[in-house]
C-alpha cells in the first residue's frame, strides 16, 4: 500500500527495528551478494593486524540497504524517486539497529504527489550510523 498525501502530515514518523544483533554472517552474505569483498568486512586477521581496526565492520552499503527496507516498507513498492545517506559511524557485528523515517514535506510536482523524508538509523547506544533523505511518489 502506498502512502496517501491526505493521510500523512509533516512530522509523522515510521520506525522499524532492522536487527537485534548484526551477525558476521550477514556481513559475509552482503559481501557475496554485492560483490564487495573488501577484507575489512570479513577478514579478522587483516582487519585487526594489518588495517588496525578493533574487528571487522559492516559495509556502509549494507546499513543503507537494511535502512532501505524501512523506507520501502513505509512508502510502498517501486515508489522511491530518490534515496541518499551519509555514513556517519561504523556498524560492528553485534550492533542492534533501528531505522526511522520522518515526513519533512508533502508536496506536488507536475501533478504528482510526493513525500520528502528524513531517514536515520541508530545503533543500540542511540548513535546515528547513517542519515539521509528519501523522496517517494505517493497517492493524492
Amino acid at each position: 500500500m502506498a502512502l496517501q498525501a491526505s493521510k500523512i502530515q509533516v512530522g509523522d514518523t515510521h520506525t522499524q527495528k532492522l536487527t537485534d544483533d548484526l551477525s558476521r554472517t550477514q556481513i559475509v552474505q552482503y559481501a557475496g551478494a554485492s560483490g564487495d569483498y573488501n577484507p575489512l568486512h570479513s577478514d579478522e586477521i587483516f582487519t585487526t593486524k594489518v588495517a588496525g581496526y578493533p574487528t571487522v565492520f559492516a559495509h556502509g552499503m549494507l546499513t543503507m540497504g537494511m535502512t532501505g527496507r524501512m523506507v520501502t516498507d513505509y512508502v510502498g513498492d517501486g515508489r522511491l524517486t530518490a534515496y541518499g545517506v551519509r555514513f556517519t559511524r561504523q556498524v560492528w557485528p553485534g550492533d542492534a539497529l533501528t531505522a526511522t523515517a520522518t515526513v519533512d514535506a508533502v508536496r506536488e510536482e507536475n501533478g504528482q504527489s510526493l513525500v520528502d523524508l528524513s531517514v536515520s538509523t541508530v545503533n543500540q547506544d542511540g548513535d546515528v550510523v547513517v542519515m539521509g533523505k528519501a523522496t517517494a511518489r505517493i497517492d493524492p
Partner: peptide, 10 residues
C-alpha cells in the same frame, strides 16, 4: 540473494 543479504523479506 541481495534482498536476503540486506534482511528484506518483501
Amino acid at each position: 540473494m541481495f534482498a536476503r543479504a540486506v534482511g528484506d523479506p518483501n
